[in-house]
Design a protein around this nucleic acid. Sequence first.
DNA 1: TCAGGTACTAACCGAAAGGTAAGTGAGGAT
DNA 2: ATCCTCACTTACCTTTCGGTTAGTACCTGA
Lengths: 109, 109
Amino acid sequence: MIPYTCGLDAAADVIGGKWKPRILWALHSGPMRFGELRRAIAGVTEKMLIQQLRELESRDIVHREVFHQVPPKVEYSLTDLGRSLNVALAPLDAWGADHLDELEASRAG
Amino acid sequence: MIPYTCGLDAAADVIGGKWKPRILWALHSGPMRFGELRRAIAGVTEKMLIQQLRELESRDIVHREVFHQVPPKVEYSLTDLGRSLNVALAPLDAWGADHLDELEASRAG
DNA sequence: TCAGGTACTAACCGAAAGGTAAGTGAGGAT
DNA sequence: ATCCTCACTTACCTTTCGGTTAGTACCTGA
């Protein structure tokens, strides 16, 4: 495996995937349960949500905490690394918001 | 097609694809010819480079200028929008660079 | 004469990403 | 008794992405 060629390369690898930016954004306001996340992110399936959460967890971007209760409760939250990533993502979000109209207009589909 | 849900969503759509961040980064220092780009971006094939350049061009991120010469010369450069995108990308690159070691360590492959 | 550089284009293929649908097992509500 | 919620898990299928190979037309230098 070739090493990352630059910081952007590494960052892209971490946030790559259809749902990761949405997850990061949703968790920005605080910890959420699995079901809350599923309802908060329109269109995501359980399989995809778990898959992406596991990947983010393995990268130490999100923290998973299980409460041994009935019914089961699992909370997902941002780690320090995750919070710092969100900070770095903010300008990109602002850029996208600034140019939303042009970007919608030049969309492929 | 569902509209973008946030700025980050839109931005991710624009820079999505294996080679787009690399292209943006390479063009940061100024206009480049097709062949220069191909040599600057290790591992990219002609097909992929053109494909991604065309997508960036259709989004008005890069500008393509043909010089009717022999041999042919085509120069690619960032538009104003492309330059503003690169500015927004800078913090993400810095974040990736800051955490390169941890990110390499937690890599999947 | 023939390889090499210029910037592409097209046909094909395999891998990876993403989506669908169903099942799990415990308990609480109706 | 049956459905519902919780947080998953599994098997399968389709779509997309990226890579390989080859070919185009033109001119230059050896």
